[in-house]
Design a protein around this nucleic acid. Structure first.
Lengths: 216, 216, 216, 216
DNA sequence: TATGAATGAGGGTTCATTCAT
DNA sequence: CATGAATGAACCCTCATTCAT
């Protein structure tokens, strides 16, 4: 999430009723959201307290409710925005015309880099995604679907180019890939983080790929 | 006014482990634990209420505290006991002398069957394991380590027999396998569960295996 | 309470419906009451748990309710019986024909000895008497009244014999004496109890009797 | 995603002691404390319910925890503050250069007046002091020590001036005095309070000072 | 707009008491 | 009589959310 660009909201052009938030407002919003992510990462969503989020953002508790609908909304928004940003950045990586295995490897590396770039955010996304997916349902799942779609496209392009078995079950492979990456990332996050995660990308990609490659 | 025999005091506080629990006691304990698993699965650990667990088990709230130390202990115990049971059953599957791919396939099928056999339990184990691993630390991680070990042995035996690349990174492959399976299981659990999960086992195993197989 | 005699209840002669309790029953009753006193002394009445009282007496929790009406009754009974026993023993001391100051001194010494003889009981009587007096009202106050009466008689006899000012306000003096003794006893009980309490009796009696004034 | 300034965090959590509490805040604090004292006096500390204290103060239950750390803290604070206030006022009385007996008498009268001025507070201090002293230990005992010290000084000054026996045991006399006063006060508090307590002060002081003996 | 004091519903847990065995 | 497992009412405290300033 190293490569996040200004969020979609900020890019809007001025309109009467929805002009870009004053610089300060936007900055404050971001501060709150980031504080929330940090506190969620440290304590888990339920044990996280609004008070601590407010303190971490340097605002009063009540202020949070001027920017977000409540605690749930903080988690949901973090999901929505951060995963969306991540998806956008993924598309850049996937859009090159390199060989499939290379693009796969870069995708994995890119994801690992994002994890390393912002561990608190990664912790929240990985630890809470399952719960959120179940208990917040729709909203979160839509976001994750977009992420899935991006990967499906990567895999499908590999099939198109003939680098991937034509009979591969793309959604299945995508789920296996996502799961495999999450497990590795999580172990890194919960561990001592001494060895760079990104260094494992090639081996992970290779392990995954050889299973799908058209074998001679 | 003479003093009481110390022995009188020691005679109290019977230990559960002194002798196997009377049939009824054990049945009640199981009822509580299963109710807890159900309620955890439906609401998530934090949102689950002791009152509902008690109601589900047909006991009074206070009764729960005769069998468990509290809410945390219910989750922890579910983890400990259920994963241990699962590990034991896994070892049976893994101990046969079939070819590696066959044993892998059976392992996957076995795990999928376990998921299908008790979806509430599976939901809890999958949804809460990450949180628990982070916030309850040690106890949960020990249990999961045993599970990891069993898989490592499966993979190592494949290497021994020459069916698996000698240069395969077993711990990495194990993590990828675990992650891949969890993702698939979770999608099934959170979905409509119309198609049997176990039907996917061969394809999952194959997808995973071909990447590790010594290729001609 | 060194000199307690068999309680009034035990002295009863056999009657059809109320014959002396079988030795075992009486012993059990005493064990419970003494355990209660100990637990009350250690934790205070409210923090004391029936479970601990039962454990200390070597009986099951339910058994306590075969001998007493409940927790309140345990405290009340302890008061009633122990203070009554103490009052009885006091009368022996006070009935001698020694000079007043000597009898006063012996009374103080006797009370101090009782404290030293059974600190847990003394702790309960002193710590809980005020609370009990207020919240259990009548029953406790009756008991304490008997104690007061005994002292009033001591003082009145001093007046009769001319050793005590005829204009002394006996009830007032009695209250002052009781309060003074309680304070000293309590300090001893809550302190390290290294020095024998009884050693202070003569000085306490003298101070009370002669006052602090430099006398001509 | 840059990190928050640590200062933002430090800006929060204002300390009560930074500046005097706003008028309203202090008033509310007092209201809570006084309600607590009333409820403690009526029910005793343990049986007192936070709900009732809140209702009596006209605040919500949660509000109490903005001002105090909990139920214990309410009792402790009442002790600390009220006894300290009392000690301060005592020093004024004791600092005059009147004859000893006169100062003693005024001290007693002053204490009796304090009791009469706020019976609920007096009830709490007298009923709970023993329990508190035992179970809350240090904090309460420190407060009471200050009170003891003030009396010791009174008595010592009497010795200095020659009005008091040089061989009097000051700490012992102080304990007797404290105990005597407490007993009288308590009887008044638990009784019907028809006759003014303060009217007894001279007689109490005299009895304590001159003793009961018929003087030659 | 920002604040943070106030709110009060809600939940985990304890423990005196009961009663089937 | 004795037991001790079961009960469930009661309570302290937390914390997300509101709203007067």
């Amino acid at each position: 999430m190293k490569t996040f660009r200004a969020s979609a909201r900020a890019r809007n052009f001025p309109r009467m009723s929805d002009r870009p938030l004053p610089e300060n407002r936007e900055a404050r919003r971001r501060a709150i959201l980031e504080s929330a992510v940090r506190v969620f990462a440290e304590n888990g969503f339920f044990a996280a307290r609004i008070r601590d989020i407010a303190a971490g953002a340097g605002v009063a508790e009540g202020t949070i409710y001027l920017y977000f609908d409540g605690k749930d909304d903080l988690l949901l928004t973090a999901f929505r925005e951060k995963v969306a940003e991540f998806c956008a950045s993924v598309r850049d990586v996937l859009s090159s015309s390199l060989p499939f295995q290379e693009r796969l490897s870069r995708f994995v590396a890119h994801q690992f880099e994002s994890i390393e770039a912002d561990p608190p955010l990664a912790t929240v996304l990985l630890l809470e995604s399952r719960q959120s997916s179940k208990f917040y349902g729709g909203a979160v799942r839509d976001v994750l679907r977009a992420y899935a779609q991006a990967i499906d496209e990567l895999l499908a392009s590999g099939q198109h180019s003939g680098e991937l078995r034509p009979d591969a079950d793309v959604p299945l492979a995508r789920r296996m890939l996502i799961g495999a990456l999450e497990e590795i990332e999580l172990e890194w996050l919960l561990g001592d983080r001494t060895r760079p995660l990104v260094a494992m990308a090639p081996r992970v990609a290779a392990t995954f790929f050889r299973g799908l490659a058209t074998v001679g």
